[in-house]
Design a protein around this nucleic acid. Structure first.
Lengths: 199, 199
DNA sequence: GTCTATAGATAGATAGAC
DNA sequence: GTCTATCTATCTATAGAC
């Protein structure tokens, strides 16, 4: 869990434990008792913080998506407004966040189907915001004649998807640093965008 | 399930039902009773075909990975041996299979963690074979001076990952045909490979 | 907030007749 | 292979004392 995002005390320990368990065993394969054992709290304590196991999952995913969105937004805010630089910085932030918080990404992308519509809706809204950041960069890049893609939606899905998958294979001792992966993927994204290589 | 892959009779109905349930509810969220109800068999019938629920999952994933490998291999066998054409045909087959058999891909990629090491090992072996097909094409393309990538492993992971994610969003009425998606992704892959655009 | 105890439902898997 | 019936374990969630 990102620093400063997890609440202090029992609630934070519960969310961290749930994150670990959901990432390695899945939502359905994790029991409330498993979470409580790792978090070193009683079952009743969990139910004093969350109305149900499903609400624990929803909170984990929501925190993850909000942090992810913040990182993308900050990357854009701090970027030179030139679309190629924006794309590069956005993809770098996307990949770095999936290296560093890979468990969050795994849970957020694998366990959405375990949420009821009521709990899923606000999370889907956050995710849409993140996706539109990339789409807007692409629209500007094309309007300014810097990008060349046949289909913006497919290009965004391809770039988003390849970055998302990083969370499923990256580990600190895999021989590559997050920075190396992020740089390579940013280069791939620029190539997908069809930027002129002679620049 | 691909035609001709699913066994006839009760066993085939069980595997198809399990595929549906695992894809929409996850392995842990699906009960043996759920599978049997959809397959219209008794619980005892399932246990006469499979030693456990986990073995049902393993068989679903194994069939999916074997079919996926076959499709990739056939695409290469039938391809002009020129590396750029090989890459294009391989990525097209990869994407088409993830459009057509998206449930299989979703289950195979989301539920591996539910398998014990014993049941996971043979499946991982098949997956490695599929991955090496792409890696070999890349090695040839670079040796012949046609591709230009900083890191083969990352390029393969990026291309494989963006194609895999297609299974999670593609649906027949999404406004794009599998062929359109496959063509665009093949173009993205060629761009990632750094092929000379002047050809 | 934290404990013991437990309700009530459902899970995976099996026995044994046919 | 198919049925009814059931075992045993575990699940989510709660009651009520402190």
């Amino acid at each position: 869990m990102p620093e400063g995002v997890t609440p202090k005390g029992a609630r934070g320990r519960i969310l961290n434990a749930a994150l670990h368990q959901f990432a390695s065993q899945g939502y359905g394969g994790t029991s409330v008792r498993d979470i409580c054992a790792e978090a070193k709290v009683q079952v009743t304590t969990l139910y004093s913080h969350f109305p149900s196991k499903e609400h624990v999952l929803a909170e984990v995913i929501r925190l993850g998506n909000e942090e992810h969105f913040r990182l993308l937004r900050d990357a854009l805010l701090e970027s030179d407004p030139e679309p190629r630089k924006q794309l590069r910085n956005l993809v770098r932030a996307h990949v770095l966040s999936h290296c560093e918080f890979s468990m969050l990404a795994v849970v957020a992308s694998s366990e959405m189907h375990s949420l009821s519509e009521e709990l899923a809706t606000p999370i889907i809204a956050i995710r849409s915001q993140s996706q539109s950041l990339l789409a807007e960069v692409f629209k500007r890049g094309i309007r300014l004649g810097l990008f060349d893609v046949p289909d913006i939606e497919l290009a965004c899905r391809a770039i988003g998807g390849m970055g998302l998958r990083v969370a499923f294979w990256y580990e600190p001792n895999c021989g590559k640093s997050p920075d190396e992966v992020a740089d390579s993927y940013a280069e791939f994204a620029l190539r997908i965008a069809g930027v002129d290589r002679s620049d």
